[in-house]
Design a protein around this nucleic acid. Structure first.
Lengths: 216, 216
DNA sequence: CTTGACATGCAAATAATTATCAAATACATT
DNA sequence: AATGTATTTGATAATTATTTGCATGTCAAG
């Protein structure tokens, strides 16, 4: 009845790589590493095997907050911290065991599992944040952190602003770009959020240094 | 500097519906409910507002194990249980506060958040499981639970089996379906897993009653 | 040396969420 | 009340992470 596990080359590599690294990689991080040793592996194989191996209890699947699942070489129960900035995951030890659920509050649940998960900034990201504060920048306006791409329309508007030395209103921009007046304000808003445009006077807009950089 | 929140009709409805229900719905569950009162809302609007409202601290986003995010009308800190079968989420109260992380194990993390999450079977699913056991069925073989769709190729093979009264081997099936002999065994395996085919004698296959039903 | 169970690679499918953008709406200011 | 502008919306495309279908490949047992 039981399915037997066959120890194929790729399965062995996956298990090996996971155990050797002693980190908590995502499926695709692991895939990148495996590919170096076995270039023809498929990402699907990595996913499939991580699933199979964790069902078999050889490894553990971590469903940490946020995005991708991560995998843990250590199938024994233990808790984790993750960095809300870089998504790194580490093990953590609590000062005392986690308390039980009050039986009066179980509400009829048959409880079988428990997960404790701390979050915060990892040492590297703490240092990075301190570096930003030292430079007097808010964490949002650091171009290397929040740089996002421009849409074609945004680029058009930004270009028009770059061409005028004076701050100008949305009507002038509409004329300059050939776009309808209505869409200008939408684009301006987006550009302001990105820090590429500011408004020195109400209803007048100008390109920022950051905005000029973004155009190149 | 702060963006101000505008209280639009849809935003009000979302907040209202969430607070009134006192459950922990997913974005699309909420969307279905909202649609009854405001048929033209967009799913994107629901997602956007749930995100905005939780960023503003009016509600809370729950990133429970597994699949969809769920949303909680109560922004205060509290813990949850979820059902591993039906995904339902409820509040839960611990017998004592969660212990701190041992400072020697913080590994340089600056910890800002904590999440405790129990899992198990909710009362409804506990009852359902008991009902299955009473009928002597393994939870996997209950047709109403594991019914899965047939692919075109599988249907073809199954149809061929239905047309013969005797159990037959893969070569005969290949002839009957016009498929290559090689693919037959793959399909047979899949069909056996679904309980639509069995093998009364080694290397001979027959359709099961379940398989006949599946063809209709 | 066949067979069948289990595996793999590739491509395509799926699920949940997020982004884009024109058009609509809300809100403060005339 | 009218206006101008920022914010929000609806519709839809795009993205991200993961899973599935299927043909083919491999291994171990008979």
């Amino acid at each position: 009845m039981d399915k037997q596990l066959r120890m194929t080359h790729q399965r062995e590599l996956i298990l090996d790589e996971l155990r050797r690294g002693k980190t908590h990689p995502t499926a695709d991080e692991l895939y990148e590493r495996i590919k170096k040793k076995l270039p023809r592996v498929s990402l699907a194989t990595v996913y499939r095997n991580l699933e199979i191996l964790s069902a078999a209890g050889l490894i553990k699947k971590l469903e940490i907050s946020g995005r991708q699942k991560r995998f843990d070489w250590d199938p024994d129960d233990h808790d984790h911290v993750y960095c809300i900035q870089c998504q790194r995951v580490d093990n953590i030890t609590l000062a005392a065991p986690v308390p039980q659920v009050e039986s009066t509050h179980k509400q009829g649940y048959r409880i079988t599992g428990r997960r404790v998960e701390f979050s915060g900034l990892c040492p590297k990201c703490v240092r990075q944040q301190e570096h930003h504060q030292a430079k007097g920048e808010s964490s949002m306006s650091c171009p290397s952190c929040s740089a996002s791409k421009l849409s074609d329309t945004q680029r058009q508007v930004l270009q028009a602003l770059a061409n005028t030395s004076e701050a100008c209103g949305s009507k002038e921009l509409a004329a300059a770009t050939g776009l309808e007046a209505k869409q200008i304000s939408c684009q301006i808003t987006a550009l302001k959020n990105k820090g590429y445009v500011d408004s020195p006077v109400r209803c007048k807009y100008a390109i920022t240094d950051q905005g000029k950089q973004a155009l190149e």
